[in-house]
């Protein structure tokens, strides 16, 4: 009975939000290893979708396939379909570079280019259109304010970005991705190398950003997912175990494996 009510609740949630990305029967092999096995997930627009699972379960491979950054991995084979805004992105005539300007990505370890803070913020957008000096300054200020870095660095925008702390560097990386104005931002464990304070700062930022962007967030930290997720995807050993509304899933997981993982961070798959 309870299950039935919950399912109908879930379907209501599913109907009210539009899915911006849909993965249908996605398989990925790297050489002989079957990394992802028939993954069917949808990513709702203007929500934070968290992908959780034990390490080695294929979380990173999954998120990295959404903007095709996996393409250059040696010996990779992809099967299935990924729909973004209603059209497939796995076709051979997809302009990958322009796809990546719509689906931006922030990586686990912050990677700043050996340039100034200002040039780092402008690095992506600079290639897309010609900018005047004033526009450049506006973009830098706007995006550094969004990631709450402006106060800390506004007086030294021309310093090397490498001089910032790791937490600041990661926020700079997010600002750089935001400057390109993507629709979707993929974040692959962006807080795993950061201190608790910077982690909280980034979490708060995500919650604000979801009004404008769709966010996909990989984390191995269940508490973090609890704090920020609207939609939850749990994968284990390359298989989708469960997905759905985050609060519903946290309070009442349907699958015994999900239950065990959410309780003990342990999965027997």
């Amino acid at each position: 009975m309870e299950q039935h009510i919950l399912k109908s609740k879930l379907s209501v949630v599913g109907k009210t939000t539009e899915d911006i990305i849909k993965l249908e029967g996605l398989h990925i092999w790297i050489k002989e290893n079957h990394i992802l096995d028939a993954i069917d997930v949808n990513i709702p627009k203007n929500k934070i979708t968290c992908i959780i699972g034990p390490s080695g379960s294929g979380k990173s491979t999954l998120i990295r396939s959404i903007n095709r950054i996996n393409d250059d991995v040696d010996g990779i084979t992809t099967q299935g379909n990924i729909n973004f805004n209603g059209s497939s992105i796995l076709t051979s005539d997809t302009d990958i570079a322009s796809l990546r300007t719509q689906i931006g990505m922030v990586f686990q370890k912050p990677c700043v280019f050996p340039k100034s803070i200002k040039e780092n913020v402008l690095f992506g957008i600079r290639h897309l259109k010609k900018l005047s000096k004033i526009e450049k300054l506006q973009i830098v200020e706007e995006n550094l304010k969004t990631v709450s870095l402006w106060k800390e660095v506004s007086h030294r925008l021309n310093d090397k970005a490498i001089s910032l702390s790791i937490g600041q560097q990661q926020r700079l990386c997010i600002a750089r991705t935001l400057a390109v104005k993507p629709e979707v931002i993929l974040l692959d464990e962006p807080t795993s190398s950061l201190d608790p304070l910077s982690t909280r700062a980034i979490e708060d930022m995500m919650v604000k950003l979801k009004e404008e962007y769709t966010i996909v967030f990989v984390t191995h930290n269940i508490q973090q997912a609890k704090r920020i997720a609207d939609h939850l995807i749990f994968i284990c050993d390359g298989k989708l175990i469960e997905q759905g509304n985050a609060s519903a899933l946290f309070s009442c997981p349907q699958n015994s494996q999900t239950k065990a993982y959410l309780k003990d961070q342990y999965c027997a798959c």
């Binding site: 570079a97 990546r100 300007t101 990586f107 990677c111 992506g124 290639h127 897309l128 390109v180």
Partner: peptide, 15 residues
């Protein structure tokens, strides 16, 4: 990581 970051920002290989 430098290549991946740049790719993630939508740069072409030549860039």
């Amino acid at each position: 990581k430098y290549r991946e970051t740049a790719k993630g920002l939508g740069l072409y290989n030549s860039e």
